[in-house]
Amino acid sequence: MREIHQYHHGNLKRVIIDAALQAIGESGPAGWSLRELARRAGVSHAAPAHHFGDKQGLADRRGRRGFRAVRRRARARGR
């Protein structure tokens, strides 16, 4: 299991998203909870809900980030 760096006055949303990606890689898209992500990130159990609302809010944010990354790559290739 890859170590997630615990949050310490940095980009908490990024740390939680990284924890989500790790959890999904280990147990699939339904095999995780916001509380589990908080534990992995070393933050209060309320922090993920505060920033993302719920699991769907976190999934939506991951999707938007992925879409932006694909769009940046396409622009870099001149498409």
Rank of each mutant, 00 (worst) to 15 (best):
R73M: 04
S44Q: 10
G42W: 02
A49F: 11
G53N: 07
R71H: 07
R61F: 05
G42F: 01
I17C: 09
Y7C: 03
N11G: 00
L34G: 08
G42T: 04
R35H: 02
R2W: 10
H9L: 08
H45G: 01
I4N: 13
A47V: 03
F67D: 11
G63N: 13
R68Y: 08
R64T: 12
E36G: 02
L21C: 08
L37G: 00
S44T: 14
I4L: 11
A69E: 15
N11C: 01
R39G: 09
D60H: 14
E36A: 00
H5M: 08
G66M: 12
D60S: 01
R65L: 14
G25P: 05
L37S: 04
S33T: 15
A59E: 10
G31K: 14
A76P: 07
V43S: 04
R61G: 00
H51G: 03
M1R: 13
R65Y: 15
R14F: 03
H50T: 11
V43T: 12
R77Y: 07
A47P: 01
G28H: 13
G57R: 02
R72C: 00
V43A: 07
R71D: 13
A74V: 12
L12M: 07
R62L: 15
A19D: 04
E26I: 09
E3H: 15
Q56F: 01
A74R: 14
G57P: 03
R68H: 12
R71G: 07
L37Q: 07
Q56R: 09
D54H: 09
S27I: 02
L34N: 10
G57Y: 00
A30C: 06
G28P: 13
A74E: 14
R79T: 10
R2C: 07
A69S: 14
R64W: 12
H50I: 08
A20G: 01
Q6E: 05
A38F: 11
V43E: 10
P48T: 14
S44F: 07
S33P: 06
Y7P: 00
A41S: 14
F67P: 06
R62G: 02
Q56D: 10
R62W: 13
G78K: 10
S27R: 15
A76W: 03
S44A: 11
E26A: 09
V43W: 11
R65A: 04
L21R: 15
K55G: 00
R35Y: 04
H50N: 08
H50E: 09
R79Y: 11
R68C: 06
I4D: 13
R72N: 09
R79W: 11
L58N: 06
A47Q: 06
P48Q: 15
A38R: 09
F52Q: 05
R40F: 01
R62Y: 10
A46N: 11
W32A: 01
A19M: 10
A49I: 03
